[in-house]
Design a protein around this nucleic acid. Structure first.
Lengths: 194, 194
DNA sequence: ATTAATTTGGTACGATTGTGCCAGATTTGG
DNA sequence: CCAAATCTGGCACAATCGTACCAAATTAAT
């Protein structure tokens, strides 16, 4: 279902953003009709009016959030200073793209990113969207490495991403998880010249 | 709550195994009082009689399943033929340990293994258990590499595991996911001598 | 054998869920 | 300006959930 009136469009968008918020700090299961409506300050029925099903709402929320993250990544690419590309700053940049800005320190934000990947396994309807966003992220990383004077093959990009993702996933079971530190360690070792 | 009579112990165990079954083919969310009771052929109330809460039941199921997988891994180690350790067979062995036996062909079984890792992020009560099992798995892989005449450092084991895990997680979003193939490709490249 | 502890299984309750319904209000198009 | 489309929001329903309760049955202990 799509809105036909300007105000309707605004309301629909408000619902999407509310759902994206819930997604970020509660995971997929936090996206419920009532929760979305409440956070958006709208009546329950508006969620079923603008979205034929929960799946549609979840998809819209994921797309909104994913696009925001990609836009953030592109901004980082544009402001990339080619001089500061060998050191730690570059590693942090890559981590920012894969795990989210270092500002949000807690592991929660990181967790969600990987919940998305895994949750896609049981929600086939998300696959096309996830595939597109994942492709764009890979391309973005490829550009950033190139721009930074450290050209890499597409295969190498995939390898580095896998390394980071694996490090993160394995860090989640620690008593006091610090996935970013684990990913940083792994990435540093992989990137140092031999 | 723990059983005091032999028959009670048997019933309790039946519940654990039923819960483990549900875990395997439905994920954590599939472990519900009613579902467990039904699969075990026992009344609903037996689940609350033997387990103070759902968390306790989930924990028991995870432990049961994890131990079974570790036992499988140890069996594979014992029957390891040191002659067939350079080729593809060895790669498949490692994949069997990390993704499960190649017999279960579908991506479902693989998916669950990674759902467990990520789900642990939102279920802190599972962390001690997951940590122990993960540690044993790492040690097991270390032994296997050693036994196979390809000694590696503990750090290298972690790196290879991360590589496989990352490859799997990223493969889950494909239209027709084949995580094992993705992991195999990544592992082969990492293990080939340079 | 008889008392006490344990187990059984049926049932019920309160919360939460996704979603359908619909009379009224609002906005849009002619 | 007015009819038609769109939107609103309150409500209800059936399912499902975790868990509490309790009288009867079974098992263990003396």
């Amino acid at each position: 279902m799509t809105a036909a009136t300007p105000k309707g469009e605004r309301r629909r968008q408000a619902l999407v953003e509310a759902a994206a918020d819930l997604l970020v700090d509660g995971g997929f299961d936090a996206i419920r009709h009532r929760a979305v409506a409440e956070r958006a300050g709208l009546p329950l029925a508006s969620t079923t009016y603008y979205f034929d099903s929960l799946e549609e709402l979840v998809t819209a929320a994921l797309e909104f959030q994913g696009n925001a993250e990609l836009a953030y990544g592109k901004a980082r690419l544009d402001e990339l200073d080619p001089r500061e590309c060998g050191g730690d700053a570059f590693v942090e940049l890559v981590l920012d793209l894969l795990l989210g800005p270092s500002g949000d320190r807690d592991a929660e934000a990181v967790l969600l990113r990987y919940e998305r990947l895994v949750a896609t396994g049981r929600r086939p309807y998300l696959r096309p969207l996830m595939r597109r966003m994942s492709g764009e992220l890979h391309a973005l990383l490829f550009d950033i490495f190139t721009q930074a004077g450290q050209p890499v093959s597409r295969e190498r990009v995939e390898e580095l991403i896998a390394l980071v993702d694996g490090a993160v996933v394995n860090a989640l079971i620690e008593i006091s998880p610090d996935p970013r530190a684990a990913a940083r360690r792994m990435l540093r070792k992989a990137m140092q010249p031999r």
